[in-house]
Computed example of a mutant assay.
Amino acid sequence: MKRTRLLAYYLLVAALLHGCGEEQVLEKLGLAVAVGYDQIGDGRLLGTTVFYQIDPEARQLVTVIAGTANTSKGLKITHNRESSKKIVGGQIRVAVYQDELARKGILPLVENLSRDASIGSNVYLTVAKGRASDILTHRYPETSNIGIYLYQAIRQNVNGENMISSKLHEFMKDYYAVGKDPVMPYIERVKNELHIDKIALFRDERLAGEISTREGFFLKILRERYNKGELEINLTVDNQRFFTVIEHISSKKQIKLLDLDKPRFSVKVKMTAQIQEMAEQIDLSKPEELHKVQKAIQLAVKKETEGLLEKLRKHQVDPVGFGEIYNIARQKSGKKKLNRDECREAIKRTQFDVDVQVKILRTGVIG
């Protein structure tokens, strides 16, 4: 049984390393799958790496190592000095940044990952509530590899359209786009469980605020198309308040600049969905009842979208990219392109006209 397990493991590692230009001896390598960065009291960095060690005699196939340095490259040197294996980063899947560090700026750390030719651009970036090392070094009873677990948890939510993707290349693209800010999942360890129930909002390279994953649903609608997913909504129909769940959500958004001098945007959202569950028994086969429910959902989505936009304005962040649209319109009208600060200042004065249209595909008696 042990020999079968080891054979399968070797095949997995060989598949991961396939295509590398430099021949590597597996037994001498530590394959990093997750890295964490914290700032400690003297301004130095505390780095944590989760890696596979390729050793048939090892009791643990997954090892966690930590060390301090002044730079991310220095952390790599420190980790290799303390490890019996050469740690390579080609299989890194997740990077975790302490929230305190993220508030001061993480661009040098992120850029270092993007410049490393051995590291793919599909690495997910995340912010940790508290120290990243506390998340990566903790022993979880249900998983032996927290790096792979985190990667799979984020990927599953991104693929299910429950979370905005935060890959390395996506962060860099949003950062360098004048008039748009990056976002990341905000993770927290509560005892032996990891919670991903917040979205970290960045102002350029610095953590500036947070929203709930529910608010992240409406942010995703404004950033990109929705093709699937579900949402629980509190509705009011005929003075009766109740909850309903809509699923198989498909959405399109249209954002237009209406006024260049006094920035004002039209934000139109069209959604189609099915009703999965409703706390009240309503006969949706009757057009008048269906219309009431659709209108109630429209009002609820409109209200939450307006609330989100106001929150983004409060934090002075623009993950939707209104500033980018504004800048393009300025250039088309012959005016000069704004820099980051000018663009952000203009968006602070922006007004939004939100319009939501919802079409329910499923009819019948729900209750």
Rank of each mutant, 00 (worst) to 15 (best):
G229W: 08
R241L: 01
Q254Y: 04
E205D: 15
G216H: 15
R214P: 09
D261N: 12
E224A: 11
K252C: 00
F218L: 06
K220L: 05
S250L: 01
K252T: 00
E232Y: 09
N234H: 10
I249K: 03
L235F: 10
L219S: 03
E224V: 05
F218K: 14
L207N: 13
D261M: 13
I221T: 07
L219M: 15
I255Q: 06
I255M: 05
I249N: 03
Q254A: 04
G216A: 15
E205A: 09
K220N: 01
K256I: 00
I211R: 02
S212F: 05
K253G: 10
S250W: 02
D204N: 12
N239A: 13
T244G: 05
H248L: 04
D261A: 12
T244Y: 06
L260M: 06
I211H: 04
V245S: 14
I255V: 03
R214L: 13
R241D: 00
Y226P: 02
D238C: 03
I233C: 13
I255E: 04
R214Y: 13
E247H: 05
R203A: 06
K228G: 08
L207C: 15
V245K: 11
E205N: 13
A208P: 08
R203L: 11
I249E: 09
R206V: 15
I249F: 09
Y226C: 01
R225N: 15
D204Y: 04
F218D: 04
V237F: 07
L231H: 10
F242H: 01
K256V: 00
E232H: 09
T236D: 14
L260F: 06
F217R: 01
K256Q: 00
R203F: 11
D238L: 07
I233D: 09
I246L: 00
E205G: 06
F202N: 11
L222G: 10
T244F: 01
I233H: 08
T244H: 02
E224R: 04
S212W: 07
N234C: 05
L231W: 10
N227C: 01
I221K: 08
L231R: 06
K220M: 00
A208T: 15
E232M: 13
L207V: 12
T244Q: 02
F217M: 07
F218H: 14
N234V: 11
Q240R: 12
D261P: 13
E230T: 10
E247C: 07
K220Q: 04
G209S: 04
S251F: 01
K228Q: 09
H248S: 08
L260Y: 03
T236S: 14
Y226F: 05
E224Q: 11
H248K: 13
I255T: 02
K220Y: 01
N227A: 03
E215H: 10
E232Q: 10
R225V: 07
I246G: 03
K253M: 08
D259E: 15
E215N: 08
F202L: 07
K228F: 11
N227I: 05
V237W: 09
K253T: 06
T213N: 13
I221D: 02
E232S: 14
D261T: 11
E230I: 08
L260Q: 10
E210D: 09
F202K: 02
Q254D: 09
